[in-house]
Simulated scan of single mutants.
Amino acid sequence: MSYVGPDFDPQPPRRPRRRPLTVALVALVPGALLGWGAYAAFGGSDDGGGSSDKAAVGTPTASARSTDPERPSETPTEPTTSPSESTAPSPSGPLAGKVVVIDPGHNPGNFQHTAEINRKVDIGTAMKECDTTGTATNSGYREADFTLDVAHRMRTLLEKQGATVELTHDGDRSYGPCIDERARIGNKAEADAVVSLHADGAGSGNRGFHVILPGAVNSGAADTRPIVAPSKNLGERIAGAFVRVTGSAPSNYVGDGTGLVTRKDLGGLNLSTAPKVFIECGNMRDSKDAAQLTSEAWRQKAAQGISEGIAGFLEK
């Protein structure tokens, strides 16, 4: 994936949070990921999140479309409402009072706005492009369509548990938002957790998911030091739940088999004042991963796994 965003506003004072997860719970992910080392068949990220083989800005795949004609017709395993429908948060759910911001990486219209998304924005440590087009499967299923679909499914699941859910975009704008604006949306919402959704564009044979955590940055408008520890907690819980629900293995090409990667070059993380992670749900350029990413049933599992990880973090 590739991720980038515009003007950073200082964050208003945040409401107090509960104390970080105890050391005992931090052991959750290593246990959840145990045994995947043998999954040798499985195989990073720009501010879209991912690896170097992202689709070139302004040059979408010729066959790019929102559905993949090569996948069989499937029935989603969960939503009782349409994935794109938002339901009122349950006032008595376990996540009542919690705010979650979901950031669907990229935008299907980015390729039509190359000048706008190539504009540089300040991410604290450097100047970076506003956004990118993202990647796509070899048959044309776009990352931007994937991320928006999973975001809708997550919103339904989290609202049923009482959370207030906000998306950084909902297919309601022609391009973007830029990476700095995406961070600002989570900050202004005073989110309890923010997750940026992506799928990678690495070489064939590279498989599996990875969660990107913010490194400690203190430069210009960026100061991630207060969110490093809670973001790691959030990322570990998401990784553990993602393995359990989807059956996917951690990446075989980054993260040393842990499914966790720390980075300091992503504006969406650098400019966040709320606990935030990115997740690369798989590699669109690998045929086996692509078969999962284009499956409605698997996307529902992905949404459930990420949502369960968020819920575990918020309920601590």
Rank of each mutant, 00 (worst) to 15 (best):
N233T: 14
L33W: 03
G186P: 05
N107H: 09
A27H: 00
Y39G: 08
A239K: 06
S196I: 01
G247V: 00
F313Q: 01
N118E: 14
S295E: 07
V99Q: 01
E315M: 11
V57R: 15
V29D: 11
D53M: 04
G109M: 02
D256K: 08
T168A: 10
A24Y: 08
L167M: 10
P214Q: 00
P275N: 01
R225A: 09
N118S: 15
K264W: 02
G50L: 09
A40V: 13
G220L: 03
K288S: 12
E181I: 06
T246P: 05
K232S: 15
R285E: 14
A24K: 03
L213P: 02
I123Y: 08
E296T: 12
L95F: 05
P94V: 04
A183M: 07
D172S: 13
S251F: 05
R119N: 06
S2C: 10
I117S: 12
H210T: 08
S139C: 11
A199V: 00
P83F: 15
G255I: 10
L148P: 03
D145K: 07
P30Y: 06
P250C: 09
T59H: 15
I185C: 02
G43R: 10
R153K: 15
T294P: 11
L25T: 08
T262Q: 07
S82T: 12
S63Q: 07
L148Y: 11
E166F: 13
A311W: 01
V100S: 06
D68I: 04
N252V: 04
T262G: 00
P104W: 02
G5K: 11
K264Q: 14
N252I: 03
G235A: 11
A96T: 07
A202Y: 14
I227H: 00
T125N: 00
G109E: 03
G162V: 08
R285D: 15
S251C: 06
T80R: 15
P10G: 06
S45F: 10
F313Y: 15
A191L: 01
A115Y: 15
D149Y: 09
G35L: 05
G93M: 03
M154S: 02
G37V: 11
G134Y: 10
E116C: 05
G201N: 02
P72A: 09
